[in-house]
Design a protein around this nucleic acid. Structure first.
Lengths: 122, 122
DNA sequence: TTTATATTTAGCTAATTTGCTAAATTGATT
DNA sequence: AATCAATTTAGCAAATTAGCTAAATATAAA
């Protein structure tokens, strides 16, 4: 379960143009290994990508991308898994689900009118 | 429809502790006027709150809260409606719906496996 | 063991952000 | 017209962020 600080970190991570684009790229970038249907879907190496491949698609220095990825990992919106000397990067789908649910609940509760239930009259 | 820059602004607005708490407060703060069930639900003045009432609940100077609210308005996560010399503030439910849908779609598409459809082999 | 590849860490600068107080603005009330 | 209430604007300082290059680390390959 994500607490308030987790959520703030997630939004902070996504609230920057470079990181947002990196995030989008991780989901939709179509890295070579990610479309190799001859590889089993649960094969990490077949389905994931690495820091250098991501950095190649942006006009920023590698350490800059590396630091952005670290922030995204700390925010739990991606996972970074070391395998030999490469780090494989994947979206963290569990976090995405929780965030989707969090906004969904907010809207649903609002529409049910179950918010506005306290009396802080002053 | 929210474009990429709209979304970045939304996440940026929510990715700061003070603004996140203000946002939460607007949804759940239970301002006096917000629970007056003798007032019709579509009565703006009966259901909304104003800059000063929000600021009273935080340990920051009023202009600081005012500027945060402006950023949240620019990000379209709240609405600010001037009525006489007060500004009434409400959550922007349309935006919340779009964001909920955006994450929902991301997760659904990911699970359907419809992402990873390009071949950027290098 | 040397070299190449993948990544991070350190240390710097410029830009941006977040807070403040004081002053300005706008509209309501006396 | 003078004052009060609600809000914003301006201008400042401190903190944080986002970029860079150079150096360090870790693993793989020759």
């Amino acid at each position: 379960m994500l607490d308030m600080n987790d959520k703030i970190k997630i939004f902070k991570a996504l609230g920057n143009e470079t990181r947002f684009k990196i995030f989008k790229n991780i989901f939709t970038g179509g890295y070579a290994c990610s479309i190799d249907n001859t590889q089993p879907k649960d094969d990490l190496i077949a389905q994931a990508t690495c820091v250098t491949s991501i950095a190649e698609q942006f006009d920023f220095a590698l350490p800059t991308i590396s630091r952005h990825l670290k922030e995204m990992k700390d925010a739990k919106i991606i996972t970074m898994t070391k395998n030999k000397n490469k780090i494989y990067i994947e979206p963290n789908i569990e976090t995405m689900k929780e965030i989707a649910e969090c906004f969904g609940t907010l809207v649903a509760d609002y529409e049910k009118g179950t918010l506005f239930q306290f009396d802080n009259t002053k």
